[in-house]
Design a binder for these strands. Structure first.
Lengths: 180, 180
DNA sequence: AGCTTAACGCGAAGAAATTGCTTTTTATGG
DNA sequence: CCATAAAAAGCAATTTCTTCGCGTTAAGCT
């Protein structure tokens, strides 16, 4: 592996080309030759590095799913969770959000990219949990929060076009915190 | 749409070809022309009917994910749920199971096939619930069961290569039933 | 039975994927 | 600091897949 120099430039310009073309022509119009041309690279370079279009899109999708800020402090564990999951739901259930999730899941035989998505959520929840513990609040484990809050939401988004409103997500938070 | 006659035969032979070739050469070796030849059909027929390989694989995957029997009666709601989710987890977390889930999810812009997967689980849970209600047991709603039992399991399978053992799934059942 | 038209077959044209070979460039060790 | 081994990218030819127009077949309907 060569992390720097030309390789880095190629990766960057290819990723940028994907983002640009996605915005310009829509995701379904993306092809490897098209991306390669825009990035100033030959198609074989992309095929050799990423394998196929799906894996490339998967990489780009994971980057876009990375949270850009720490979860906001609302003063209490419950409020922090409610605010975070509400925003999370909004992003993920949108048309683009769903597409990114699916892309991240698909082009990824080794499950690595999907795991990174879950790690992002876990990191955010951990930050919320640490802050709450600092306040002296009782905090469920991250696993429990993933199971009770993130998983039901993602299941709905992926499998069932159904309610993902704040009313619903807040209910998930309540169920997670009010458990015996 | 023409459900019968030649169309039905084509669909059947194409689906059969997918299953056969999948077993013979592995899923990654599948291509539209290969499937078409095996099915005794021209490639353009497949492209016209299914659009692309992903949608075809999605259709086949959903069929294979359809439960083949009603959930077994273990004498109580808790035991029924435990037995059902345990078997469900075993099937879904296997290598083939995960592949089918991903295929069903991916080749499906309209979300129809993914929804059918969820419907299968909902049907099974409903059957268990109706039986338990007949015994006079208190039964959570299907939505609650999906959120509390199915969703966490599927999230783990899709996003995090982690524990999906009976110990874990039975814990999900306990959490679902012991909720206030 | 006859009619309409959805669905399939065929073949050509165009686009994308794969691969061997060459060239460039990075990282390392003298 | 240069030499060198090897990784990564470029190039081009080949193979394979995809799309599309047009003719043919056969469901479904009256």
């Amino acid at each position: 592996m060569r992390p720097g120099g030309r390789s880095a430039r190629v990766q960057q310009s290819v990723h940028q080309a994907v983002r640009d073309l996605e915005a310009e022509r829509g995701r379904d119009a993306l092809t490897v030759p098209l991306i390669a041309t825009r990035a100033g690279v030959t198609p074989s370079t992309i095929y050799r590095r990423w394998g196929d279009l799906r894996e490339l899109l998967s990489d780009v999708a994971v980057e876009r799913l990375r949270p850009d800020a720490a979860p906001a402090d609302q003063g209490s564990l419950r409020a922090d969770l409610e605010a975070w999951i509400e925003q999370f739901a909004e992003e993920m259930s949108s048309s683009v959000g769903r597409t990114y999730i699916r892309d991240a899941l698909l082009g990824d035989p080794e499950q690595g990219n999907a795991a990174r998505c879950s790690d992002y959520a876990a990191e955010q929840l951990t930050a919320i949990g640490v802050r709450a513990a600092g306040r002296g609040e009782a905090v469920p484990g991250v696993e429990a929060l993933l199971d009770a809050i993130v998983a039901p939401l993602m299941y709905r988004i992926l499998f069932r076009p159904s309610d993902t409103s704040a009313a619903y997500t807040h209910g998930l938070v309540a169920a997670a915190l009010d458990r015996r």
